[in-house]
Design a protein around this nucleic acid. Structure first.
Lengths: 230, 230
DNA sequence: GGCATTAGAGAGTGTAACTCTCTAATATTG
DNA sequence: CAATATTAGAGAGTTACACTCTCTAATGCC
């Protein structure tokens, strides 16, 4: 027995099956108290109030709640970063590229560049020449750039610097991944802004964890082969 | 005027230039109060006491301190995870493979598998068949496996599942990276246990951040090319 | 009419990672 | 040799984060 589409997805934009908070909690697996906290924090838009002590929440609340939890539990993002991402998502004047930038800044490490350290300077120079050689268009202050520089500086400090060719190999691998990922994003007219935006956030954050997890599993396998079970 | 090597690296194992805590703080950039905290927490072994209110710290303290900060600031690990890693590092009865396992468990997400969720079950089945098909030797309870399953389940829940061939492509890329990384670790007799151990921890944690950062930078570049500066 | 449920706001809780304060002792300097 | 500065070590206090609890007034439902 097919459910009438008009009932499953009726009403205005984003208004689907409308339920009370207890039901939203049950469907999302998030405690009621936590949902209230998210509402107060502005992470979740308020429901449509039907009375002084009654409000209803739709499908978009459920999707938003799942997005928050995915970014938090799987992506490991703090709520402050998630709030920044969601603000950009909800601002329809923010284009796709700027939105991805917002996600990058929200992800990006909050570590301050320790200029003055010779290892840092060497790492920064290496990053500069790498990006220049590849012709990648990245903003100078991108957090990922700081992260890369910090990681290379730490490797240098530990006496195991990641040199030019080895680093370029990593960059080529990363470039191949990113190329396919961005190409795989839906077109704007086809998916609409909301669809593109969600796919983009998902792609940046969740695919990263997929990659990281697969690499760790592969390392475990390789380590077992080289060093044996002991 | 060359410094006599016997003076720069004298004494017993790991005892280099011996200094007071203030000097250790200056060289590492870590505040004295924080070093004291690490000492109390057991992250840093105590210095050699020369009097009731005097202790000296050597090169190994400096290296350990740098390792802690790298894992914390770049790897984003909580101190509890770092403590677990360092315990395994210091336990000479732990072999290379088991040490990498300890790092994996320390890194691994602290999210509980939500069995019962159909998306989770589908993701778990996909992970099982992928690993079986690749023949990777990974323990069933590996945290990376949970992370992968959780990420795939979240993608499914968001309506953008990462399907068989696409996932296999990611796995192939990750496998290639891990193969080169593990092959690049020094041999046990050549580097000694301490050298191998540090290279392994570094390889797992810092190279991961290098890869992640490069992927994000590549995404920014690809996004700029596809969506333009707006 | 009466009772369970709900929205909303404020305060309280637990954890992590420091940071501050204090004491006694030791090194340094005049 | 006495005054001052510095240090090790231990405990308590602080800040940030992410909830979680408590309370009140207002419904909805029987």
């Amino acid at each position: 027995m097919p459910v009438p589409a008009a009932q499953a997805r009726a009403g205005g934009p984003g208004r689907g099956v409308c339920v009370l908070m207890a039901e939203l909690s049950r469907r999302s697996g998030v405690p009621v108290a936590t949902i209230k906290f998210y509402l107060r924090d502005g992470l979740l838009p308020p429901g449509t109030a039907t009375a002084a002590t009654r409000a209803r929440y739709g499908d978009d609340h459920l999707r938003r709640l799942r997005l928050i939890r995915a970014l938090q539990e799987i992506g490991g993002l703090p709520l402050a970063a998630i709030r920044r991402i969601l603000t950009a998502v909800d601002d329809t004047s923010v284009g796709p590229h700027a939105l991805l930038g917002a996600v990058q800044y929200a992800l990006g490490p909050r570590l301050d560049p320790d200029a003055g350290d010779p290892d840092w300077q060497a790492a920064a120079a290496e990053v500069d020449s790498l990006l220049a050689g590849l012709g990648w268009r990245v903003t100078p202050g991108a957090p990922a750039r700081t992260l890369l520089t910090a990681a290379l500086a730490a490797l240098r400090r530990a006496g195991a610097p990641l040199a030019g060719p080895g680093l370029a190999e990593y960059a080529a691998t990363a470039g191949g991944l990113a190329e396919r990922e961005v190409a795989g994003l839906p077109d704007l007219p086809a998916a609409g802004r909301a669809g593109l935006v969600e796919a983009a956030v998902t792609g940046v954050v969740l695919y990263e964890q997929v990659l990281v997890a697969l690499r760790r599993l592969a390392q475990e396998d390789q380590s077992a082969r080289r060093f044996g079970g002991g």
